[in-house]
Design a protein around this nucleic acid. Structure first.
Lengths: 344, 344
DNA sequence: CAAGTCTGTGGCATCGTTGCCACACGAGAG
DNA sequence: CTCTCGTGTGGCAACGATGCCACAGACTTG
C-alpha cells in the first residue's frame, strides 16, 4: 500500500478514485469489490490491485446509508467498573464480534439522563438493536417506539413488550435465605440498594417468601437500604450491627454491598462466620479468596451477555415474533462464611 | 410523539417527512433544526412541532457523510474481563461521553487477527480517532497510514510516531524489587507473562536493574514465563516453589499472575509472608481484602483511560503536533504480604 | 440469417443531510 | 422611482456507495 502523499491533504481514497485508477466505472468497481454480478477476471484483478495500492477501505456509513442496513448494536450498562457489568459487556462483545457486528458501548453511571442520551444516540446512528441494563421502563419504551429491537438484560422493566435475559432472582434469593434459616438463623438482615428494579424487588420478595414459609416473623427494620457505594454499605452495616437486636446473618444483595459488609465486619473485628454469617448476591473474585470464602449466588455474567446478543440477533431476524424472556441458571456457591448463629 | 402506524412498514421519519409535514422545504427544515441561518420564528416552531410529532431523529450517518466529520472513536482493549482493562474503558467512556463522542469498543482477546479486524472496522466507520492497548506495532502503523489519530495506552509500540499514555513501568518495578531486597531477600522470582510488550519488557528491566544495583547476581531461572491464565500461573508457581533453590519472594508482573501465585501458596499451605513474600503489579480489589493484604503497584486505570481520551482530543484538534507520551504516576501500596525471608 | 441468450460494462438515481446559491419581498436610502 | 440591503425561503449538488437498467458484443440455436 502506498504512503499517503506527503504534504498533500491526504484525502482518503474513495470508490471513484479506485475506479479511475483501474480505468473502469464505479459500477464495475463496486461489483469487483463486492463479488456481486458480472466482472471479467482480468478487470477484477486490476480493480483489486488499484484498491490495495490506494489503501482503499469502503466507507461503512455511505454503504450503510445506501443499503439501509447497519451492522452495529448499542450496549448500555450501568457501571463498567463493576465486574458484573464488565463481564456482561465482554460476553456481548465477544458474540457481537463473531457475528460481524460492531458495538457502541455507553456506561450510564446509573444516571437516567445519560441513559436517555445514549438511547437517542443509538437511534441517531440507526443501530440494528440495543442491549440494555435499564434504569426504568423509559429506554425500552423509547427505543421500541423508534422501532429498534431491544433486549433488557439483568433487569426487566418491559417484560412482554421486549425480550429479556435474566436469572430467577426471587427463587435464588429464597434459596439463599433458606440456607441461612436451615442453619438456625432467624434474625437475617437484607442489605439492599434499591427495590424498584426487578433485581432488587425480586431479591427482596424471595427473602420475604423464605421467611414467611419458614414461619419467621419478618422484621422490617432488618431490610436495610444502603446507598450505592462500598462506604455506604459499610456504614449501614456498622450501624445495623451496633443495634441491640442486631442480626446474626447478613444477606448482601450484590457484590458492592457485600464488600461493604465484609469490610465493616473486618473493622469491627468480628469473626466470620462465628460472630456473623455473610452471604452475597453475585460471586466476585475476592469472595473465593478471602478467608473464610463468602457463600454467594453465582451468575455467569458473560453468558448473560452472550445470550442477550443471541436474543437480539433472533429479534433482528424476526422482528414480529412474541417477546421472549430467557431465564438463565444461577447457583449458590457454599463457602465458609455461613454457620449457625452463636448462642447469645 | 405519535405511535408508529400499526401494520404500516413504519419507515422512520426523515427530514423530508418533517419538511412536508411543516409545509416547508428541506433546506428550511434543516436550518430550523440546526439553528444555522435565517428562519422565521413562527416557521421554526412549526418545524420543531412537526419533528416532535413524527419522532424525528436526525440520521447521524447521513449527516456525518455530508459534513465529513464523525464524532465517534474506536477503543481496542485486550480483555474486558480483566478489571484493569474494564477500568481503562470506563475512564475513556466517561470522558468521551462528556465530550459528545460515542465509543465503539472491541475486546481483541489478545488475538492479533481480531486487533487488525477492529482497526479496519474503525477505518471503515471513519472513526475520529482510536485508543488502543496494542499487541504489536501493526495497529498503530496501519491506523496512522490511514491518517487516523491513535493513542497507545498502557503499552507502547510506536513511541514517537503516535501519542502514548503509560506509567513508568521500569522505575516502579525497580522500586518494588528494591523493597524486597531491602527486606533481605536475594532469591526473588519474577513471574511474567511476556517480555515483548513494553509493559513486560520494562518491568523485567526494572527488576534486573534493582538486582544489579544491589549487587545480587541475577539468576535467569528465577524469571519465569507463566502463560496468560490464572491456572498457568498457579502451576508455574507450584513448580517453582518445588525446586530445591526456590525463591523466598515472588514478584507477579500483573494481577492475573498474582492470583495464580496467591492460590498456589494457598494450595501449598504456605504462610504469607513468613514462608513466602508476594508482591504484585496492578492493585486489584482482592489484594486489599485477603489476609495478609498483597503489597502491590497501584496504577489508576480510570485516569489512564481519561488521560488517553484527553490526548486523543488534542491530537484530533491538532493533528500535526509532535507525538507526546504522557507518563502517569503509580504508587507502591505496602501491605502485609512482605517481610524478611525466613532463615533456611 | 434472424432471434435469442449470456457476459460484461457504464449511466444514473438513490439513501438522508447540509450548505451554497439564487431569488423574492419589504423597507429604507439616494 | 430605482437601488441596495436585510430577511426569509427553496432548488440543487454534493458526500460515498449500491444496484437497477440499458446496452454492446459474442455466441448459440432454429
Amino acid at each position: 500500500m502506498a504512503e499517503p502523499a506527503l504534504g498533500a491533504t491526504a484525502r482518503r481514497a474513495t470508490l471513484k478514485d479506485v475506479a479511475h485508477a483501474a480505468g473502469v466505472s464505479q459500477s464495475t468497481t463496486s461489483r469487483a469489490m463486492s463479488g456481486e454480478g458480472y466482472v471479467a477476471e482480468a478487470v477484477r484483478q486490476r480493480v483489486l490491485a488499484a484498491a490495495d495500492e490506494l489503501g482503499y477501505v469502503p466507507h461503512a456509513m455511505a454503504r450503510s446509508l445506501r443499503k439501509q442496513v447497519n451492522r452495529s448494536i448499542g450496549v448500555l450498562v450501568s457501571d463498567l467498573r463493576n465486574t458484573f457489568y464488565a463481564d456482561l459487556a465482554a460476553g456481548i462483545a465477544s458474540r457481537a464480534r463473531s457475528q460481524g457486528y460492531t458495538m457502541m458501548l455507553v456506561d450510564d453511571e446509573g444516571l437516567p439522563d445519560v441513559e436517555q442520551g445514549a438511547a437517542e444516540a443509538f437511534v441517531a446512528t440507526r443501530a440494528a438493536g440495543v442491549i440494555v441494563t435499564p434504569l426504568s421502563a423509559a429506554v425500552s419504551t423509547y427505543l421500541l417506539k423508534q422501532n429498534i429491537p431491544v433486549v433488557e438484560v439483568d433487569r426487566q422493566f418491559s417484560a412482554g413488550r421486549c425480550d429479556g435475559v435474566i436469572i430467577d432472582n426471587a427463587e435464588i434469593a429464597k434459596r439463599m435465605t433458606d440456607h441461612l434459616v436451615d442453619l438456625g438463623h432467624s434474625r437475617i438482615a437484607l442489605l439492599i440498594d434499591e427495590t424498584n428494579w426487578t433485581t432488587g424487588g425480586e431479591r427482596l420478595a424471595g427473602y420475604r417468601r423464605s421467611l414467611r414459609e419458614s414461619g419467621i416473623a419478618a422484621d422490617p427494620s432488618l431490610v436495610v437500604s444502603a446507598g450505592w457505594g462500598v462506604d455506604d454499605a459499610r456504614q449501614a452495616t456498622v450501624d445495623m450491627l451496633a443495634r441491640r437486636d442486631h442480626p446474626t446473618a447478613v444477606f448482601a444483595a450484590n457484590n458492592v454491598l457485600a464488600e461493604g459488609v465484609w469490610r465493616a465486619a473486618s473493622d469491627l473485628g468480628l469473626r466470620i462466620p462465628d460472630d456473623l454469617s455473610i452471604v452475597s448476591f453475585d460471586d466476585t473474585q475476592w469472595m473465593s479468596m478471602v478467608t473464610p470464602g463468602i457463600t454467594a449466588v453465582s451468575q455467569d455474567a458473560v453468558a448473560l451477555g452472550g445470550t442477550a446478543m443471541d436474543r437480539l440477533l433472533e429479534r433482528i431476524e424476526n422482528p414480529d415474533a412474541d417477546a421472549v424472556t430467557v431465564v438463565l441458571d444461577s447457583q449458590i456457591r457454599p463457602r465458609g462464611s455461613t454457620s449457625g448463629p452463636r448462642r447469645l
